Simulated scan of single mutants.
Amino acid sequence: MANIFQQHKYTIAIAATGAVAGFAAAKLLSSHTHAVPVPEQNQHPTPIPKPTPDPKDEEENNIYETQKYVNEYLLLHYGEADEVLRHSFVPMDSLEFPRRVGKECLDAYRSVDKSKLPNRAFDVGCGLGRTTFELAREFEECIGLEQSQPFVDACNKLKQDGEMPYNVCEEGDVHSTYTARIDARVDRTRTKFVQGDACDLSLDFGQFGCVVAANLLCRLPNPYKFLERLPNLVASGGLLVLTTPCTWLTQFTPKKYWLGGHYDQNGRPVTTFDTLKRVLGTDFILIEEKNMRFFIRETARKNQWVVTQATIWRRR
């Protein structure tokens, strides 16, 4: 998912300076008095201490591995309106984005001929699993794949226990504790959560009646590899649902792999939707394109309101 932001900058103190200065002083002294033996230059080299990684840099480079992001995404996936929002004037229709993505998948799936389709769904970049659980209302097998191991661990705990407590930042060090809960009507045994790389999907996954990737494309190091894999993942007549806010950043994706947000060789702007139509058009039929809003709370007063582009495709 979906899933969401840097560079390591280390300053190394030149600890060897003292050793070099000491060696020079000893050499000078020995040339006059011969009282101080001069060691060979490499006999006992002074070790240069390794720089200690800045925890802030580590967190920024592995944002989806931190408990902070696990908590924020639990709130995105499972938070009630009064838990997410603190103000009456915020966009209420932007809540429960992962549930709404699941509903888009199910509504589209119910409109196709399912008689020859595998009753399986694949949620690639599943985040904290809400869409995967929603798909289990219809599909007998639902696989959620996520690269972040802490996210996968949380999904499996939710599958096992049906609920999970988590903390949400209000202000500074002040937090509130909430509980993520799976709808009791969902058969959690239909779900399976695995850690994996969307750019290197195993051939063992087989084919699916529905594949969904919500807000994943612009967080992949090479989204073309994922797109090239899709024709083999989606069974003929099956559905593909993609959403992306098109927030291309070199932090996640080298510019040469951006699907959009750049100019072609003739100076014309290229959008992500342009590239999706070009790459997927041979194997998929575009059914619908629409905008979907979602809301991520960071603190009681700082939030993200995002408009993501959703496209629904049918495999030829």
Results as ranks from 00 to 15, higher is better:
residue 5 F to T: 15
residue 7 Q to M: 08
residue 10 Y to E: 15
residue 10 Y to A: 14
residue 12 I to E: 15
residue 12 I to H: 12
residue 15 A to Y: 09
residue 16 A to E: 13
residue 22 G to H: 06
residue 31 S to V: 00
residue 33 T to W: 09
residue 35 A to T: 14
residue 38 V to F: 07
residue 41 Q to N: 11
residue 43 Q to D: 14
residue 44 H to I: 14
residue 45 P to D: 05
residue 46 T to W: 10
residue 46 T to F: 13
residue 48 I to S: 07
residue 49 P to Y: 04
residue 53 P to Q: 06
residue 59 E to M: 10
residue 61 N to S: 14
residue 66 T to G: 03
residue 77 H to K: 08
residue 84 V to T: 07
residue 85 L to T: 03
residue 90 V to C: 09
residue 92 M to F: 07
residue 92 M to N: 09
residue 92 M to I: 14
residue 95 L to H: 06
residue 98 P to N: 06
residue 115 S to W: 00
residue 115 S to T: 12
residue 126 C to E: 04
residue 129 G to H: 04
residue 143 I to S: 03
residue 144 G to Q: 00
residue 145 L to S: 12
residue 151 F to C: 02
residue 156 N to A: 09
residue 161 D to S: 06
residue 164 M to G: 01
residue 165 P to W: 04
residue 166 Y to R: 01
residue 170 E to H: 11
residue 170 E to T: 11
residue 178 Y to F: 14
residue 181 R to K: 14
residue 187 D to T: 12
residue 189 T to R: 03
residue 192 K to Q: 07
residue 194 V to I: 14
residue 199 C to V: 10
residue 199 C to R: 07
residue 205 F to L: 11
residue 209 G to E: 02
residue 210 C to E: 04
residue 212 V to S: 04
residue 212 V to R: 01
residue 212 V to L: 03
residue 214 A to P: 15
residue 215 N to S: 09
residue 217 L to K: 08
residue 227 L to Y: 02
residue 228 E to S: 13
residue 233 L to G: 01
residue 240 L to F: 05
residue 241 V to E: 01
residue 257 Y to R: 00
residue 267 G to Y: 03
residue 270 V to Y: 01
residue 271 T to N: 06
residue 271 T to I: 05
residue 278 R to P: 03
residue 279 V to D: 05
residue 281 G to R: 06
residue 281 G to I: 06
residue 288 E to P: 00
residue 295 F to K: 04
residue 296 I to Q: 15
residue 299 T to L: 07
residue 299 T to N: 08
residue 301 R to P: 10
residue 303 N to M: 11
residue 305 W to R: 13
residue 315 R to D: 04
